[in-house]
Design a protein around this nucleic acid. Structure first.
Length: 817
RNA sequence: GCCGGAGUGGCGGAACUGGUAGACGCAGGGGACUCAAAAUCCCCCGAGGCCUAGCCUCACGAGGGUUCGAAUCCCUCCUCCGGCACCA
């Protein structure tokens, strides 16, 4: 008799799994592979409860699939480039590399203490040259295909972080990291042409049943496809100049256009204003707009203001001259930066027109047909759009067009702790990629990291100064680094071939393991990371790396771990440290709690009494196993069909289905709890089992073994210890290598079943009948039941209208007075 | 505003394909063991009512509908959470 002591059994089994390389995955699966992936952590220093939850969910699935006989790929690594390392360097004078490496050591130790079944031989870390070298290699391949390009662009600039932010990193006009309002700045930047894949990224979403609807919707919104048309408006005062092109989704309302509006940054503005008396006022307006931070500029609440140019556009459909305005609500970033204003059918245009006294002309009637639209009058809107677009096309002043909200991905960062962009700027040759043979371009060490603006790499002469690979004359390296989202966009391929120094990975391993069977991570990555990961997979496919277009077959977005209703965070002081929980309860109980307290996709409220409950359960299960194991080690296989056996197989069936099909890990655990309760009643630990019948002992052995197997994925250490006790010692194989059994279907059904009897749909009683009994037999039983019979067969007063019979479950008798 | 998700006991949550609403756990109550306590084990635990060994009525955000039967399907509405949002 030994108390449940996780402090001793957990390290013991962790060591044994490690020594036996229990979780090593083959480079290539033999056709029965399962890739179970969890989002890799940033090595901030400590594992938090969110990690524990995320990785516990994945670990249950990985261990279960392995026991099911699949070859499981379950790797772990580090998303180890990023700003916190630089901040630590500034604050503590540590080199980002030292800080990062030491955090990795600490966090790896913590993960190992949780007993996660990772193949640690595949561990990767994105800050190491053998990883980021392939970021550079991929960048150059993308450059060669026009997928990486340089462009001077107004960018989102965070004054606090002194860096450029992608649109995706701007949240309500503020920096996603520090919350500082973002401003506009014009900078030469590298971009990835994700827009080239917009159609594919969108279309695939309709064929991804393994992703949550929520995420699919978020991605659809983000891509923001809209169908419409370009229409060219000539400038009345400058008939020889290029016309102004607008984008509209409502060409059917063009007869109601009463003005044309340009974004303040539209390139035509300059020539338009030449010799215009409104020039001074217009330029003042444009200058004022430029000073407005991006976030404020894009806010829908902002008042719509503008200024007239004094020029006019000619509506190609009507020949009418309409005034050209510059308006703050027209965005250069979307469409053509120019719109036609239709106050009659667009709220924003109406607001603007109202302010400046521009007319409003309705051109759609109540039935949704065009009116006062010349030869196009009387058509339903939808049809009018097609006809009018065609007409514009035929006459050379327009064409159908599809616009996307999705912008190309700006990846240049003026930071130190990231992948150096492998490009060289030569005065004679222009922009030249670093030859593959010279990769990786290493991050230099002679850099002072101050946190001031600009790229830290510029402060390293040894880095910045180089020679042109083409002409050998002195040249300068690009001193920006890549957005760290690049690192995490393809890491899951590198796990498959982590030490390959010839290529990012071999195409055959990607083909063999992909797509990822289950990817688990936070909903916070629903857009950014998961969109980029899809994009990269498509790009790598097109480069010929053997990747599928869609890398992830099934996605699980797990909820947050809350305390007191809010996310755990240092600033709120409501953080529960996983270490302390392991110390106090052990890894198994910690795992059980985070899995039991809520279904995986929902938020989970941390509760001290809740974890106590799971601790109680673990000890309870342990007492049973510990008390009975010696007496039933040699028990034979059971042959009967008693209640204990039925409960055992029922539990096995439920747990199997809950993990395999439903991913309802909380109900799987509750099923195991029910089995423990049932075994307690069948064979309390304090009553010796030796005096019971052989069949009882056999049934108990089966129950305890099944309990142990079911506990395996959830509380693996305790289960492994119990497994060795039930096998009479360590000489039987490990539980992690044991085959997960099938429930015996014959034992799942009862000989006698309880049929619910309803009268007019209300439950009125129950009758016992043999399993599979026909309706007539059930009716007989009802007739024998005094109470039910009085309701159903009360002579003249009631009449049975019909019956509804569900075999082995329910009989509904419909009666009328 | 548009799009998604969700509303079930004191609490976390079950109820999968329309078929006994509240599994399992927490909190609470009672009992057993104990000199006592802790630990442990067993039982009770939605609300109201009555002719109180039992039975009835109500109850799954609100209201309607479909159905023999609805937490589950349909319609309308309310609330909360999340995403997008001057995107033409």
């Amino acid at each position: 008799m030994a108390d449940y002591n996780p402090g001793s059994i957990e390290p013991k089994w962790q060591r044994i799994w490690d020594e036996k390389r229990s979780f090593a995955a083959p480079d290539l699966p033999d056709g029965r592979g399962f890739y179970c992936l969890e989002m890799l952590p940033y090595p901030s220093g400590r594992i938090h409860m969110g990690h524990v939850r995320n990785y516990s969910i994945g670990d249950v699935v990985a261990r279960f699939k392995k026991m099911r006989g699949l070859q499981v790929m379950h790797p772990m690594g580090w998303d180890s480039f990023g700003m916190p390392a630089e901040n630590a360097a500034i604050q503590r004078g540590l080199h980002p590399r030292e800080w990062t490496e030491s955090n990795i050591v600490d966090m790896r130790t913590q993960l190992k203490k949780m007993g996660f079944a990772y193949d640690w031989s595949r561990e990767i870390a994105s800050h190491r040259p053998d990883y980021y070298r392939w970021n550079q290699w991929l960048f150059i391949r993308m450059f060669e295909r026009g997928l990486a390009y340089r462009s001077l662009r107004l960018v989102n600039w965070c004054p606090q972080c002194a860096t450029v932010l992608a649109n995706e990193q701007v949240e309500q006009g503020a920096c996603w990291r520090c919350g500082t309002p973002v401003v506009q700045k014009s900078l030469d930047q590298w971009f990835f042409r994700i827009s080239r894949y917009a159609d594919e990224l969108l279309a695939d979403l309709d064929r991804m049943p393994g992703w949550p609807e929520k995420v699919l919707t978020m991605q659809r919104n983000w891509i923001g496809r809209s169908e419409g048309a370009f229409v060219d408006f000539r400038i009345a005062e400058q008939p020889e100049a290029d016309p102004i092109r607008v984008f509209t989704t409502r060409i059917d309302t063009i007869f109601g256009a009463t003005f044309l509006a340009l974004a303040p940054g539209h390139p035509v503005v300059r020539s338009l204003l030449e010799a215009s008396e409104g020039r001074a006022a217009a330029e003042a307006f444009i200058a004022a707009e430029r000073a407005v931070p991006v976030g404020e500029r894009l806010s829908a609440e902002r008042e719509k203001t503008g200024v007239t140019t004094g020029r006019h556009a000619v509506n190609p459909f009507t020949g009418e001259k309409i005034p050209i305005w510059i308006a703050n609500f027209v965005l250069m970033e979307y469409g053509t930066g120019a719109i036609m204003g239709v106050p009659g059918h667009d709220e924003r245009d109406a607001e603007f027109a109202g302010r400046y006294g521009l007319p409003s002309v309705p051109v759609i009637d109540a039935e949704g047909r065009t009116i006062d639209s010349g030869r196009f009058s009387g058509l339903p809107c939808e049809r009018a759009r097609g006809v009018m677009t065609q007409w514009a096309n035929d006459n050379g002043f327009g064409e159908a067009s599809v616009q996307f909200r999705l912008k190309d991905w700006g990846i240049s960062r003026q930071r130190y702790w990231g992948t150096p962009i492998p490009m060289i700027h030569c005065a004679g040759c222009g922009i030249v990629p670093v030859p593959d043979a010279d990769l990786p371009v290493l991050l230099p060490d002679d850099v002072s990291i101050t946190g001031a603006g600009g790229s830290p790499l510029e402060s390293s002469p040894s880095f910045a100064n180089t020679t042109c690979p083409k002409c050998s004359s002195p040249a300068r390296r690009d001193t920006d680094t890549m957005d760290t989202f690049v690192d995490s966009s393809w890491y899951f391929y590198r796990y498959l071939d982590p030490r390959n120094d010839k290529a990012p990975f071999r195409p055959e391993v990607a083909r063999g393991w992909f797509p990822i069977d289950l990817y688990i991570g936070g909903i916070t990555h629903a857009i950014l990371h998961l969109m980029y990961a899809r994009f990269f997979s498509m790009v790598m496919r097109d480069i010929g790396l053997g990747t599928p277009g869609e890398p992830v077959a099934n996605l699980l977005t797990q909820g947050m771990v809350l305390k007191g209703g809010t996310a755990m965070s240092k600033s709120r002081g409501n953080v529960v440290a996983p270490d302390e929980m392991i110390e106090k309860y052990g890894a198994d109980v910690t795992r059980l709690f985070v899995l039991f307290a809520a279904p995986p996709e929902r938020d989970l409220e941390w509760s001290e009494s809740g974890i106590d409950g799971l601790h109680r359960f673990a000890r309870r299960a342990w007492r049973l196993l510990d008390a009975h194991a010696p007496a039933i080690v040699d028990a034979p296989a059971p042959s009967g069909s008693g209640e204990m056996r039925r409960r055992t197989h029922q539990t096995l069936a439920r747990v199997t289905d809950d993990i395999d099909r439903r991913l309802h890990l909380n109900t799987a655990i509750s099923a195991i709890m029910e089995l423990v309760n049932a075994i307690y009643l069948f064979a309390p630990p304090e009553e010796p089992i030796a005096s019971r019948s052989a069949e009882d002992r056999a049934a108990l052995k089966e129950a305890l073994e099944t309990l142990t197997i079911c506990l395996g994925p959830f509380a693996p250490h305790m289960a492994e210890e119990a497994w060795s006790m039930l096998g009479g010692g360590a000489h039987r194989g490990l539980l992690v290598d044991h085959r997960w059994p099938e429930a015996d279907a014959r034992l799942l059904t009862l000989e006698e079943v309880t049929i619910v009897v309803q009268v007019n749909g209300k439950v009125r009683g129950r009758v016992e009948v043999p399993q599979g009994a026909a309706e007539t037999l059930v009716m007989e039983a009802v007739r024998r039941n005094e109470r039910l019979a009085s309701m159903v067969f009360a002579g003249e007063s009631v009449r049975v209208v019909k019956t509804v019979f569900v075999p082995d479950k329910l009989l509904n008798v419909v009666v009328a007075p």
